[in-house]
Design a protein around this nucleic acid. Structure first.
Lengths: 197, 197, 197, 197
DNA sequence: TGAGTTAGAATGGCACCACCCGTC
DNA sequence: GACGGGTGGTGCCATTCTAACTCA
């Protein structure tokens, strides 16, 4: 399975999503994560070799690709329109992580409209950084459903466990934190939604 | 005064910082905010004309510039290295907003190292989205001080008031709410730090 | 009271001793710590302003000295012989921290012999970094007593609390750690031995 | 091969490192250890003639040098800046032993920055006195990797065997003890890293 | 050499408080 | 403006781990 993680704005949990979906899919079949973001965040995360799967830069990924069943691409933020169309063709699924934040959502809608215009259908929105204390994820969800925009049922909560994991170069699955278990459950749940597509 | 807001990663509160510093400086002298980010977030924010100052796109800013004393540029995320050097030359101050998040900080360090290498000194880090419940802003602050990286004393807290304000196209100053007041106080404090430079 | 902390080898807890004795004496009368070590370790420790007393570099200490009753000097490791004699004349007490380690002890004996040769008597050995699991502090103690070398009754244990405190720029007194309390008790006990001299 | 062992702070295992690396390299080719530290610790260690290689003082090393293939210098702690540059030029490799201790690390960073400033690249950090019960070596390692500072993969553990060996003027290799074996393995591993450079 | 004991550190669970959000 | 809820931090306790000592 080929999956690309794409977003028009940074700071929406793109790399966190790429890392944890790779972790989940790797429990299914050998998975490769290609870091195509010039920030190299996924490579920084993998720097200490605590991840269960391989992370490669785009330039260095060629030799790894044939040996893996799932290929996940952590795309750069704000790709060119041509890149977007190429990604849509070259992947089974485009995941667009978005926070319920007004400006982030605005940017995501623009991307969705672009996809609609070019008859691209293999994308799905993932709501991230959802603060359980606020209600704006509910508003965002209602809006997306009303507009018939494909959306993962699962939302990713805003939890310190993700930050802790990134500091240690681990995933929240391996980072045993008293409150962090639910963090992994959510990405597990997203992974199941993907497998069931 | 010419100020550029720059960051290597998105989602660090770059636009929020640009909007609110413009609001503060506008109480001093006529201020223009140039939105140079292709996401046009500042222009979206200004869409309903509730802001006290003018927001212009980079292309459309020429006629406004001569009439304003303070010019603030909301740069695109991850500018080219040449752009960075041009910005440093063309502005009195470069503000780099950063969350205490590990990966964001890593990207900021890279930018700072780039500035150091090219003898650029007119930049200053602004810690944003600081969750008062966590301690990682303290860690980040310690690190930056240890490395002698210029840093605003004031930190911007993570408050829902900023999101509310962006939804309504207002600033937290105009958003009359018990919680909005402390949000505004922080940017006011950053503004004073800038004026006192 | 004028006290100098001196050692011929580094890494014996010289700075840790200076910081914590200053903390204790400061509860008695205003205390100044002069960092005369080119490593500036005490100044690094004080960098975040969490210490209850003032730390000054040797060059910048002049204005502070008259206002303080206790002056503690954290001397550089391996001072010149002339420096040693000057220190002995200019201070009420020379404290020589030493680990029970064979090579450290060897260096300390050399210093003691030098003092004996020049009829210097106002020095006292402080055993530091004593690992409670080992027995070599007992051997070291016996040796020093047999040779009639003045020695503090109290020993400083090897505890992680000291490292934690230094990381946070605090003293073990202020660093509330379940096991850190005994760490403070030991320096308190050394302080009492000094006062009772 | 010419190797210098250098550190800005004492008590980091500089002499222990010099002795044991000499032991390892001597199994390869004739090795000479020059003790350039005024504490003469390596000479004290060699006093009872139990070491497999020759230890010479700097003053007395001239006649031995031509007869040996590997020359290791145990430099004094906190050498002058000019000494550092001369060492870097005159040796194939500079080894900087450092404990994971906060203040020691701080001093090491300063040395590294000095090297960077003068385009010296032939240095490598060796983490020493690592207490396997604590986690601070992990933190130190992360920091060094993050800053792209060259680091030996192998760490030297804090073991009583090293102290025992020094007391007896032997190396941990010759100190036949269940605990001495793992101690020796680590320096053996460092030696292999050096040979493979 | 090997097993048992001990000290110190890390970890995980639990109770507690602090902070911010939503609601009334 | 006061309340309840959710998450993060801290302190406390029990458990586990490593390495040192001791004894057989």
């Amino acid at each position: 399975m080929f999956i690309a993680i794409v977003s028009l704005k940074g700071g929406v949990g793109k790399t966190t999503t790429a890392i944890h979906l790779s972790t989940y899919l790797h429990t299914d079949k050998p998975t490769l994560l290609i870091d195509a973001d010039p920030n190299r965040s996924a490579l920084v995360w993998a720097r200490e070799d605590n991840l269960p799967f391989i992370v490669a830069s785009q330039a260095g990924s060629a030799t790894f690709v044939p040996k893996h069943s799932h290929i996940i691409t952590d795309m750069k933020a704000r790709p060119e329109e041509d890149d977007l169309l190429d990604l849509a063709k070259g992947n089974d699924l485009i995941i667009i992580p978005t926070t319920p934040n007004h400006l982030d959502l605005d940017a995501t809608i623009k991307a969705v409209n672009f996809f609609k215009k070019h008859n691209v259908n293999n994308y799905k929105i993932l709501l991230t950084k959802v603060d359980s204390r606020t209600t704006n994820s509910k508003t965002a969800k209602q809006f997306l459903i009303r507009e018939n925009i494909p959306l993962f049922k699962t939302e990713i909560p805003l939890l310190i466990a993700f930050e802790r994991a990134s500091q240690n170069g681990k995933t929240v699955k391996d980072y045993h934190d008293s409150r962090g278990k639910q963090a992994w459950k959510q990405y597990e749940s997203v992974g199941k939604e993907i497998i069931n597509l």
